[in-house]
């Protein structure tokens, strides 16, 4: 039941977000139509952070309580996290190419920091698959989930210090309130829609995982 409600909520919100992004919101004066990627880029970045925060919390709870439920949540969230990080890494350069003239710029802190994040969570998956038993893999992944998350602030800080101001990343603009009210509203709706999507996907992934485990247990019983 909850899943049905969430599904419809996500669908409606996504439709509204799409309408707002393509029809309602005014086109940005200098960047033109490309700027609309912004309403996809920011939610992707936000969901990347959200999912890795959930991975971090799930990993701690798993290590402390040793209940499989927490590992399943952390694992499902990490899968979504890597999807949304990948999305941010793809969508970002598509925006950057027409605006900056280059796909990628190492000097803008958010770019390399996101890439490193992506690598850390790639390692999260690899460690799990390299472990001999599943429970051990879960433990190792949890350790990586914790250590990797602790690393994020330092990565962000060191990349910020390291930056060579060549291009202007619009990230700061949002927090300074330099955004048209219509744009702010559209962004908020878009973030909300994507967060609902995240919740829905997480719910689906967790129940899928539970079904997988159930089938495996049944198979073991029949052997």
């Amino acid at each position: 039941m909850a899943r049905k409600i969430l599904l419809w909520l996500t669908l409606v919100l996504m439709m509204i977000a799409l309408y707002m992004v393509f029809v309602y919101v005014p086109t940005e004066k200098e960047m033109g139509i490309v700027q609309r990627i912004f309403y996809l880029m920011v939610p992707a970045g936000w969901l990347a952070m959200l999912s890795f925060t959930i991975v971090f919390l799930g990993s701690i709870l798993y290590l402390v309580k040793r209940v499989d439920k927490w590992d399943i949540i952390a694992r499902s969230s990490s899968e979504l996290g890597i999807v949304f990080t990948t999305m941010a890494l793809i969508v970002g350069p598509i925006w950057a190419k027409p605006i900056w003239g280059v796909w990628w710029d190492w000097g803008t802190p958010r770019l390399p920091a996101t890439l490193i994040l992506w690598f850390i969570y790639l390692a999260y998956f690899m460690v799990r698959s390299f472990a001999a038993e599943e429970s051990r893999g879960a433990r190792f992944a949890a350790v990586v989930g914790i250590v990797g998350f602790v690393d994020i602030p330092i990565i962000a800080l060191s990349n910020t210090l390291w930056q060579r101001e060549q291009f202007q990343h619009p990230g700061a603009l949002v927090f300074q309130g330099g955004l048209d009210p219509k744009m702010t509203l559209t962004l908020m709706v878009s973030i909300f829609a994507f967060t609902a999507l995240y919740c829905l996907l997480l719910l689906l992934r967790v129940s899928l995982r539970n079904a997988e485990i159930e089938i495996r247990d049944l198979k073991e019983l029949s052997d």
Partner: peptide, 11 residues
């Protein structure tokens, strides 16, 4: 595992 985590300290 090691290389991405130590990026900040290498920078």
């Amino acid at each position: 595992l090691f290389l991405p985590i130590v990026v900040p300290i290498i920078i």
